[in-house]
Design a protein around this nucleic acid. Structure first.
Lengths: 179, 179
DNA sequence: GAAACTATACCGTCTGGACGGTACAGTAAA
DNA sequence: TTTACTGTACCGTCCAGACGGTATAGTTTC
């Protein structure tokens, strides 16, 4: 059998990292190839064009979102608490894929926007089972707010420190709403 | 006496509109000029380069944010309720400037990010006076969440219909937290 | 079991177009 | 006459994608 395509994953990881750190504009094919330690030709062998790169990223996102939804449902202290905690940037594969995809949605990439809407809806449904439809909405928007802020920090480690305290505050507010 | 610079505002409005509707990538100088009904030479007469265009947009945002903060403080039913209501996309000058600037922040424009952080902090301070620091955080994140979603709708009229009901729900949740 | 062949996994270079910006000559209103 | 433009021509750079080539691993044929 032929060699294993080691470059493929490296390229996708590099694309994701550049989207998070420097935005869509700077995530050029050259930059992605360089970061992945691959030639541009090698990149284009696996992903014939930039759209293919995006498609692959969205598939990764869908996969991770499915896993995450399952964990959310099974969370011992309820899906709402899990959701708030997981909305904080923690550099997990899910976080990375989500924020990276966000950058594409910002650039008016329609398919990405549709995927986002679908994922959000699924989350909302799970939340509603835990805390009812109204509080679910509130929790959903709080989570979006946390992501909104993560977006502006560009995947840095630093920003978390202050935000972790915010998560505790939000969990406290959630407890008040549970009664 | 000289003529009034009618093109200047038209250019800034066009830049804003393109950022909202098609993202930073597509908001090229040529596209902005065309949309504003101005020649490229005319555009560059007022804004010597793209950075100047961005600077002007951020100044507009700061101005509008100041006005908005004042209205927020004076809101009869409290600044928190005002904040939630105003976080829904309503195509106001403030909404437009905010979402347009968001597109720049996404592209890792540091100055824009700094401005955002400053505006958010001011809002948070005003909210805390109304509902205390903890609920203020929750309300702040809900507002960010609403903006987060507005970002993905690209300034369309349609999305609002569903979201207006959400605002009522969030106001209801806020009332529960006030007690 | 070795040559001949095939498929996969890349590398490096090139091109055409877009984009930011410059330059400048001309025009029209105040 | 100054200010506020229009319009065109042009330059350097960057970028997506095309393309031709190479290396390696497995497969077939004799």
């Amino acid at each position: 059998m032929p060699r294993k395509p080691v470059a493929r994953d490296a390229v996708l990881d590099a694309f994701e990292a550049l989207l998070i750190e420097v935005g869509e504009r700077a995530a050029t094919l050259d930059a992605v190839a360089k970061r992945a330690g691959v030639s541009k030709g090698g990149l284009l062998y696996h992903f014939p064009n930039k759209e293919a790169l995006i498609t692959a990223l969205l598939e990764r996102l869908d996969l991770l979102a499915d896993e995450d939804t399952a964990l959310m449902k099974a969370a011992p202290d309820g899906s709402a608490a899990y959701f708030i905690r997981s909305s904080l940037w923690a550099d997990t594969p899910m976080d990375r894929a989500f924020v990276a995809a966000t950058r594409l949605a910002e650039v008016a990439h329609e398919e990405t926007r549709r995927r986002f809407a679908a994922i959000q809806q699924r989350w909302l449904d799970v939340l509603a089972e835990d805390v009812g439809p109204d509080v679910a909405k509130a929790v959903s928007y709080m989570g979006d707010g946390l992501y909104f802020n993560a977006i502006f920090e560009g995947g840095q480690e630093g920003g978390n420190a202050g935000r972790e305290a915010d998560v505790d505050i939000l969990l406290g507010v959630l407890d008040r709403l549970r009664k």
